[in-house]
Write a protein that binds this DNA or RNA. Sequence first.
DNA 1: TTTGAGCCTGCGGC
DNA 2: AGCCGCAGGCTCA
Length: 386
Amino acid sequence: MQQLIWKSVPVPAKEVSLAKVLRCGQAFRWKNIDNVWSCTLKGRVVFLKQDDSNLYYSSLASITDQQQQQQQQQQHDDTLAVIKDYLNLEINLEKLYELWSSKDPNFQKKSGAFSGIRILRQDPWENLVSFICSTNNNVKRISQMCDNLCINFGTYITTHNDIKYYEFPTPQSLAHESVEQKLRDLSFGYRAKYIYKTACQITNSPNGLADLVGLRSLDYKTCHTELLKFTGVGPKVADCVSLMSMDKHDVVPIDTHVWTIAQRDYKFKTGSKTLNSKVYVQTGDFFRELWGEYAGWAHSVLFAADLGDLNNGVNVQDGKAIKNGGNIKKEKVKKENDTNSDKENLGIMQQQQEEVIIYSSSGRPLRGKRKLQMINQGVIKKVKKE
DNA sequence: TTTGAGCCTGCGGC
DNA sequence: AGCCGCAGGCTCA
C-alpha cells in the first residue's frame, strides 16, 4: 500500500468540522476510515484529517498521472488549492456565526454544538446529478447511488486501503441510450431517465460542461432558471445546486424539513397547508431577510442541528454531555460497512437481475437487495424476462 | 396558473 | 408474513 505523505495547513476546527460538513447531506461520496476522510476530486484521491488548529491533507494521483509526472521532472501539486477552493476556506465562518447569532436568537441557541458547518464549493456537474438522485430519498441511499455511478461509469484512479477510487462520471459517459436501463437495474428508479437526459442536455450544449460551470458568474435568477431546464430538476434541486456549487450563498433551498423549521421555530405563517411554489419563494425570502447575504450557509447549520437532535437524544439517555459524541462516529463506521457490503453484492445483483424477474406474493416485482435475499433463500417463483 | 396523482426503492411500523 | 406509508421532489395532465 502506498504511504501517504501528509502536509498541514493552519485551519481552526471552528472554521470547518470535516465530520459535520462531509456528512450533513451536501456531498455524498466521502469515506471515513480511521478518522481519515477520502474522496476523488479533480482526478486524484484527496485525503483529509484535522485537529483543533490544523487541517492535514494528502493525495494520490492516478497511475497514468504518476507516470506522466515522473516523466516531467517538475510536478506541480495543486492539491492544496483544490482543497481550499472545495472547502470555501477564504470565507470566515466564525464571524458569520457571530453575525447570525446577533440577528437571530434561535440561531444562537441552536448553533452551539454545531460549529464548523460551512457550505462546500462543489463541482457543478456532480452536485447537479447528486441532487437529481436526492428526490424522495435519504442520505444513505443517495450515497450508494453516487458510489454506483462512479463504480459503473467513472474512471478508475487508484486503490488505497482496499478501496477502489473512481472519478465521478463525465456527462459523456452517461449520455448513451443504454444508460437509463442500466441505472434502473442499479435501483435508481425513475431518476434513471432524469440522469440520462440531463447528461444528454449537457453534451448537446454548445460548450458542454463549460456552459454549466458558466452559471457561476451569472445572477441567481438566471442561474436558477437555467438549472430548471434540466430534466428532473425542480426549484429545490436548482437551489441546492445554486447554493452548493454556483456561489449563490444567500439561497435557502426549501424542502419539507426546512419548511417545518420555519413554521415551528420561527412561527412563520403562510396560510397554506402545502409547500406550493408561492410558499416556497416566501419562505426563502423570509430566511434571506433574517440572515442576510450568507443565508444559505446559516440554513445548513440549523438543518444539521435539527437532524442532530436525534443523536443528542441518545446522548442524554446515556447521561452524557452533548458534544459531537462517539455515537455519531459509530453510526458512520456502520454506514461505511453497509456501503462496502453493498458494493460486493453489486456484481451478483446485476447478473441475476438480467436473467429473471421475481415477484412478491403481492405481485410486485422485487429488486435490489430484497430480490437478492429471495434468490439466496431459493423460495421464490422465477419468471423469464422477455 | 395551480393542484394532485404517480413515480422507484428501501425501510420501519404494524 | 406481507402490506402500508413515507423519505430532504419532479413531471405531467
